[in-house]
Design a protein around this nucleic acid. Structure first.
Lengths: 208, 208
DNA sequence: TCCGGCATCAATCAAAAGGTTGAACTCCGC
DNA sequence: GCGGAGTTCAACCTTTTGATTGATGCCGGA
């Protein structure tokens, strides 16, 4: 019998996951959490094998699903965490997987796939949605080319449509510095304009 | 007895709505649709009082929830359509309401609120999530200042970071025309730069 | 029917922003 | 302690933008 904890801020989604998974004879839903914090508590208190974890927890929550995943998997004998989310951008997936998630599924997955993923997670095997797996492999092939923290910060503001001057003011820098960061970003991403950089970074999930 | 049709591309959400609403003694779920097209068909065929309609139908679908809503409410004796969606941006809500939706709810609504909204919709009364209602009233107070279709198109490309020249090429216009549109956009929005226009328009839900 | 809004384009010009090059300084790891 | 990566800045030049002025054709409501 696989004991499950469902963590999602949407009552409808919780009910849906419960309905879909309860019909499996070898599953038992032992708890539900509407917040990330509560999920961490319950994962520690209750006897749970697999946590179904949403990533987005609404504006009212200080902790997100990735942080909760890290908190849960940090302790010994922790349950497996299976991330179940709506969107599959790199920006979401990688932190979650780095936080120790055993699998990553999309909410539009058919019920059978969900059940299979839960069984895989319970057995310690990883279960990734194919789109996520594809992107992970893609990521392996390309040598990373990660941006530095400052560069990411600059590019994030550029992506918001700010000009170099506005970015420099926001970050208390000179325009020269901002431009310099941008040049480095361009070379790292293999592009030669701010809009191309934003597009490329979005595609790679480097910025939200 | 209120007869319901659930239209959502996510199996989990369909199951969740079913689970939440089935427990109400005066509700009967008579059909489910995984695509917008199927929802339109079923709304015409089956005896339905209220359609619970998602707005987003995934990349595999040509029709979105707002279009389906319009198609359903167009015919005589049509059921009421209650939009149930995840996000509440102006860009989403207004088309849906214009398409004839009786109500607009967010998926993070508590089950009781959902049930109340369904009863209101069945009775012909409108049911809006408070955040949506707030923005509608706000909209009433501000004298609209709507952008023309062409202006919206131009601003959308500008928001993607395109230069005037790129926009002109994409739209088969001269740069002069693009600039002309932008000037009009600026005066309508009360701003004086492209980035400010993008920010303002985003805030008002004029562009995605 | 006439007027106003919309869409289209032209030309000019100063100011702003963007991109390039080069160069310090700091911090960290080898 | 040397080298490289990251952060910061300056000077220079090119491109873009925004402001302005003005004009044409189309369409729909008063």
């Amino acid at each position: 019998m696989i004991r499950l904890l469902i963590a999602d801020d949407h009552p409808v989604v919780r009910a849906g996951l419960r309905a879909v998974l309860e019909s499996e004879p070898d599953f038992a839903i032992v708890a539900e959490a509407a917040t990330a914090e509560r999920a961490v508590e319950l994962a520690a208190e209750a006897e749970v094998d697999v946590v179904l974890m949403d990533l987005q927890f609404g504006p009212g929550s200080a902790m997100n699903g990735a942080q909760a995943t890290a908190a849960i998997t940090a302790r010994a004998g922790a349950p497996r965490v299976l991330v179940v989310t709506t969107y599959d951008t790199d920006a979401d997936t990688l932190p979650a997987l780095e936080a120790g998630a055993t699998g990553y599924l999309l909410k539009d997955a058919p019920p059978e796939e969900l059940a299979q993923a839960v069984r895989a997670a319970a057995a310690g095997r990883s279960a990734l949605a194919s789109s996520v797996a594809d992107r992970l492999l893609e990521r392996m092939r390309t040598p990373a080319a990660a941006l530095s923290a400052r560069e990411t910060e600059v590019l994030g503001l550029v992506a918001d449509g700010l000009t170099n001057q506005q970015v420099s003011q926001r970050l208390h820098l000179s325009q020269a510095t901002v431009k310099s960061h941008l040049v480095h970003i361009y070379t790292k991403l293999g592009v030669d304009s701010r809009t191309a950089a934003v597009r490329e970074a979005r595609g790679r999930g480097l910025i939200r």
